[in-house]
């Protein structure tokens, strides 16, 4: 696991590429970088706000003490966070103290532009549309499609293989058995194929590769 701040390469284009292939746009707004983990080949687009500074404090100090070892945001491999997203760890008052809880985002997750994420966890192969709001402590399980403009209420658990939408979100269907399967086009090193080889919920490696 590498930290984007730690392993900066020479500037090249609009983004910073880390050793493990993470691509972080220069214009991205990242605070508290030491508390953020990117799994590799993950893309953070411009104007994304990653609030790594909001994490559980070992002491009740006002400012983020770097001695605290807790992670606040971890994102898996081949995930894409599109422009304008705000990713902020969830918090609640516990024993009279406002406490932030770590957030975990899995692999091959796509988060559409201008979404606000405060989930406790998002599992792998999740596709989140644009302008979504995931309220604190929501949990998204594997293989889920969240339609654009959805508001997932706090504490909601979205079970695997479901499609959610609406305000507030409700489960409105199931993704088919074929969710994420690319149907023959997958294994190909065919970025040059006629059609793009990535599908919603599928392996996003090609998509990440295509972003340059």
């Amino acid at each position: 696991m590498s930290r984007p701040s730690a392993a900066r390469k020479a500037p090249k284009g609009e983004y910073i590429e880390t050793d493990s292939g993470n691509k972080v746009w220069r214009k991205a707004n990242i605070s508290g970088a030491p508390n953020i983990t990117l799994g590799g080949r993950t893309v953070i687009r411009e104007d994304v706000h990653l609030r790594g500074d909001l994490h559980r404090l070992s002491t009740t100090k006002e400012d983020g003490s770097k001695s605290s070892s807790s992670h606040s945001i971890s994102i898996g491999r081949c995930s894409v966070v599109a422009a304008g997203c705000v990713i902020k760890p969830p918090c609640r008052v516990s024993r009279g103290v406002l406490t932030y809880y770590p957030m975990k985002i899995g692999d091959n997750v796509f988060i559409g532009p201008n979404s606000t994420i405060q989930s406790a966890s998002i599992s792998s192969h999740v596709h989140i549309g644009e302008h979504c709001v995931l309220q604190p402590f929501s949990m998204v399980r594997e293989n889920v499609k969240i339609l654009p403009h959805t508001i997932v209420p706090a504490n909601m658990v979205i079970p695997s293989n479901s499609v959610v939408g609406g305000r507030p979100a409700r489960i409105i269907g199931e993704v088919g058995e074929g969710w994420g399967a690319a149907g023959g086009a997958s294994a190909a090193g065919g970025a040059g194929t006629g059609g793009e080889s990535w599908v919603e919920g599928g392996d996003l490696r090609e998509l990440v590769r295509s972003i340059r």
Partner: peptide, 10 residues
């Protein structure tokens, strides 16, 4: 149709 979620769109 299946997969047509238009009623949930704003």
């Amino acid at each position: 149709r299946v997969g047509d979620y238009r009623q949930w769109m704003p």
